[in-house]
């Protein structure tokens, strides 16, 4: 009886502001269309897609995948820390997450510099058109996610969040996880699958 009375009620809504989830669903729908378009466009010239896919740097993509996964993990730890009212620890995890985001941007930028140096353009061929547009669209989401994480870190430092109220951090966190989620599909699709 006591256990029944103290049991937490079932939760029906995800963490964070519901509005961010609507925004995330819209973003995910766009990326889903992008992914399907890539896969069906590839059917038109599989050999060409495979040939130019081989020019991509899989090592850089691995570093970037690990950077985003690690960054997402750090955000989970930041949220766990604030739920225990450990504000300073939470800020440190968020800064570490931002550093991983920065690593992603650095590695991805280096890839772009290399490809542009080789004369690769959006108009080069269908594969590069998808590669550049898909990855750059995602790149912009990483930038936006880092701006959001920086704002969350600043507010946490200023004491805006606590164990009792941290909806803002949850909201920023789920957006960042969405950025990670999209890359987890993009990485094998564009860099690995043949």
């Amino acid at each position: 009886m006591s256990a029944t009375l103290t049991a937490a009620p079932p939760v029906r809504y995800p963490p964070g502001d519901l509005a961010i989830w609507i925004f995330i669903l819209a973003e995910l729908a766009v990326f889903a269309i992008f992914f399907a378009s890539y896969a069906f466009a590839r059917m038109g010239d599989v050999a060409m897609f495979n040939e130019y896919q081989a020019t991509l740097d899989k090592g850089a993509a691995l570093i970037n995948t690990l950077a985003l996964i690690t960054s997402s993990y750090f955000v989970v730890r930041a949220l766990a820390a604030i739920r225990e009212d450990h504000r300073k620890t939470s800020v440190r995890w968020l800064l570490a997450a931002l550093a991983m985001g920065g690593l992603f941007l650095f590695v991805k930028s280096a890839e772009y510099v290399h490809h542009f140096g080789e004369g690769v353009r959006l108009s080069s061929n269908t594969f590069y058109m998808f590669y550049l547009s898909l990855t750059f669209f995602h790149f912009l989401h990483v930038v936006l996610g880092m701006v959001i994480l920086a704002a969350v870190a600043l507010k946490t430092h200023q004491g805006a969040y606590s164990a009792g109220e941290h909806t803002g951090m949850e909201t920023g966190g789920v957006y960042w996880h969405m950025v990670d989620l999209v890359w987890l599909i993009l990485f094998p699709l564009v860099y690995v699958m043949r």
């Binding site: 995800p14 997402s72 989970v76 789920v174 990670d180 094998p188």
Partner: peptide
């Protein structure tokens, strides 16, 4: 691709809550 879908579900379940 299956690995990627499993990873995505893990992110949704455990990281996104």
């Amino acid at each position: 691709l299956g690995f990627a879908l499993i990873k995505g579900q893990l992110i949704g379940d455990f990281f996104m809550g």
